[in-house]
Design a protein around this nucleic acid. Structure first.
Lengths: 188, 188
DNA sequence: GTCTATATGACGATAGAC
DNA sequence: GTCTATCGTCATATAGAC
């Protein structure tokens, strides 16, 4: 892996762990094993590195979700596969955590991929749920958009609870809870 | 309000807006309108200020939740009152946001009130739901602990979605979604 | 492309006068 | 109690040699 590539990967890791406000060019260089001059040759500064890093993480996040959501099975089976996918729960969501960073939220270019990824997730889940309703797998009374927002919120909030508790248990409970509630809307 | 009091209040605001990693003694002093010497006379440093500020915010958060959860009405009515309570959605949760701060999570004393508050919320909601089940208001099949975790996660995740979208709409949708799902478990 | 040197300001605190 | 002076370190680059 070349210097530019290592720098972006280090930035991705550090953004995940510490957020934009919590990282420094020096820290990125050290983790990447790249000198100062080299970093400033490839990138204009911390912000340019973050733009590249966040863009890549956003793309990856959408691609991984699409794997489960476009898989086989009923609507509810695909949502379940997405929610129960193996996750590094205590690390949290690398996109969702950026919503808590004041400098990311204040910068339209840094913010855009965060907004877009979470909006896309809600929309994609709403599609899957609407499909399930049309196929008669789910009750007609279910609101796909509301339940989609609930589902994404359970994930994001589950990470918060897990990190606070230093345990994956509350995350798993929250997922169990929403899937249990949803089960009552599956048609026989 | 005296200097010590103003310092704690400024710290509470800044922690909410920027997290522990994102604030500085200087910023706290300026918002409080208090000089450097005065700050270090009343508090040993940034960490001591944060301990006082987080402790107070945690207490207040639990007290405000208890207002709705110990109110009148059925189990589901009280949970609904809590979820639909007026909130400054775009500011997020002053406790939940601290789970994304690496320095808070690394310091047991700073972390404890965060953990305790979110654990208390889950437990209190589970109590309310269990009570509803015992009284026959809710289906016997409902798991109070799982649904409690889901409910708190919907709140915390709702804040994340709202901040990303710069709109309260996804928060409201997520709340509507979980209440809609819960409605199917209310006994006639 | 990568290195070292240098610059400017902020961070987080301590010391001692008033 | 509050003020000003001072301190060592880190943040975020820029400049120019190799």
């Amino acid at each position: 892996m070349n210097a530019a590539e290592r720098l972006v990967e280090s930035t991705r890791e550090l953004l995940w762990e510490r957020g934009y406000t919590g990282i420094s060019p020096k820290g990125i260089q050290q983790r990447a094993g790249v000198g100062q001059g080299s970093m400033y040759h490839h990138f204009a500064g911390k912000r340019e590195l973050a733009l590249a890093a966040i863009g890549r993480t956003a793309e990856e996040t959408r691609a991984r979700a699409e794997e489960q959501l476009s898989g086989t099975g009923t609507s509810v089976e695909r949502v379940t596969a997405y929610l129960r996918r193996e996750r590094d729960v205590l690390r949290g969501c690398p996109i969702g955590r950026l919503t808590q960073d004041p400098e990311v939220m204040a910068d339209p270019a840094l913010r855009e991929p965060v907004d877009r990824t979470l909006a896309w997730l809600r929309e994609r889940l709403a599609q899957v749920l609407a499909e399930g309703r049309e196929r008669g797998e789910l009750d007609a009374g279910l609101d796909p958009w509301a339940v989609a927002a609930t589902t994404v919120a359970v994930l994001q909030g589950g990470y918060v609870l897990a990190r606070a508790a230093a345990s994956a248990q509350p995350f798993d409970q929250a997922v169990d809870g929403v899937l249990g509630l949803l089960a009552a809307h599956v048609r026989p």
